[in-house]
Every structure is written in structure tokens, then in C-alpha cells.
Amino acid sequence: MDEIPVTGAELQAYVDGQLPEARRADVEAYLAARPEEASRIAAYGSQREALRDLYAEVLDEPLPERLVHAAEGARSAARTRMLRWGVAAGCAMVGLAVGGTVGWQLHAWNLPTVRSTAGIARQAAIAHATYSPEVRHPVEVGADQEAHLVAWLSKRLGGSVRAPRLAGFPLVGGRLLPGESGPVAQFMYQHESGRRLTLYVRNEPGASGETAFRYAREGKIGVFYWIDRGFGYALSGELEREDLYAVASQVYRQLNP
């Protein structure tokens, strides 16, 4: 009797419980004879379960009013959202602005000579717009575990990363982010008024020495950025330029004692 070969699609279907019952025995026999393949397929199954677990709680969250209105067909919802979620929506808006560089102004006293240097400001502004409005998960590791946080981020960035102390803005914590050419660290600070600043730190391989402070603004978010001894830094926040500059200077001084 000829065996029908097991296909990759059937292995996926096996993971998802979408395999026709008649093929189950064949697939199981196929896997039984191939331990490495079997462990890969088992890993896919655990992945599936882990994803379901990870997002299960969203189903039980109370429904935001704005979504109920939108579901019921309320017309004014879009405007309300833009007002209430101006910053939250910032991620998408920054994206639009970046796409066409519309509204993206560089008030640098030294125009950036390297395109990727301006890139850090853009990336930092996007990351700031994404995470600073977060209520429940603004950071991955809180300031209460600062030693762990700093050790973890240093390890992932492959160099000694520090979380500077900022007057009036205690450290909330930090997170690891994907960057254009490797992992990026983001530290978050919060004023007692609730206003937040983020410091974005990434590797700048090949950048020896340092650059002057440069400034960029996207909407309400101002960014001071510079390169110093192999790291690129960008401090983002909704502060006046002078105030943000003062904080950026603090950061710089602390990293260069």
C-alpha cells in the first residue's frame, strides 16, 4: 500500500487542530519517526497556547466607551478620539508625518550630516508616543528593580548602559525595543504632574567621538539627541525646548562625570 506523503501544510493543520481526522494517524506516525520534526511541531503548539494565554485577558476587559459608540455607529467618535487620544494616536500620526517628512522640522543648529543621526530622533519620538501614554505597562522593568533593569539592558546592548537621575523626574523604569540595527533601551521618567520623559539609547557602532546636541520636534514631542562614545541618545518629551535642553544637559553631564 502506498503511503501518502505528509506535507508541511498538514503539519501546520495538525498544530491548529484543522487536520482531517483521516490523516491524523499518518501525521502522528510521520512525527513518531522524526523526533526533531516532532519537537518543532510541539514547539509550535506551545507557541499557539502561549499566544492565546497572553491575550486572553483582553476579552474580559471592560469595553471602552468610545469603542461602544463606534460600534453603534456614532458619527462623532473620530473627533472625540483625536482630542482624547491625541498622544496615543501619535504613533500613527508620527508615522504619517515621517512618511512624507511633512511637519517634521529639524531646528538643529548643526544640520545633521549623517542621515541615521536624524533617524534616532524619529525613532525616539515614535517610541515616546507609543509608550509614554501607557497606563498599565509603561515599562517592562520598574525602577524598583533598577539593578536588574540596568544589567539586563547593558547585556542586550552589549555595553554599559546607565539610567541617569533627573531632577524632578524620578525613574519609572525601562524597556527593550527593536531598533533599526539592534536592540534599543528606553528609560522612562515621570514628573509628579504625570508628565513623562523618555531616554532612548542605542548602539552607534562606528561613531567614535561625540556630536553636539541636536533638536527635532514632532507635534508636541521635542527630542534632543546626540552621540557619545559609541552610544546614540535621544531625550523625548512634551516640554519647551529650553526645559528639555536643561534635562538633556543633566543626562549628558551624568554620563560624562
Binding site: 497572553l54 491575550y55 500613527a92
Partner: peptide, 26 residues
Amino acid sequence: VALIPRLRRYARALAGDRSSADDLVQ
């Protein structure tokens, strides 16, 4: 309205953070 929770769950996983996800749902 009944589908909001499922749309939100998928959007959360797709977009990453809550506010972007809810904007996407809206």
C-alpha cells in the same frame, strides 16, 4: 458591539500597545 472584545484582542496582539490597538478597533 458583541465582536468588540475579539477585535480588541486581535488588535492588541497585532499593534502591541493598548491605545494603538483601540484606535485600530475604533
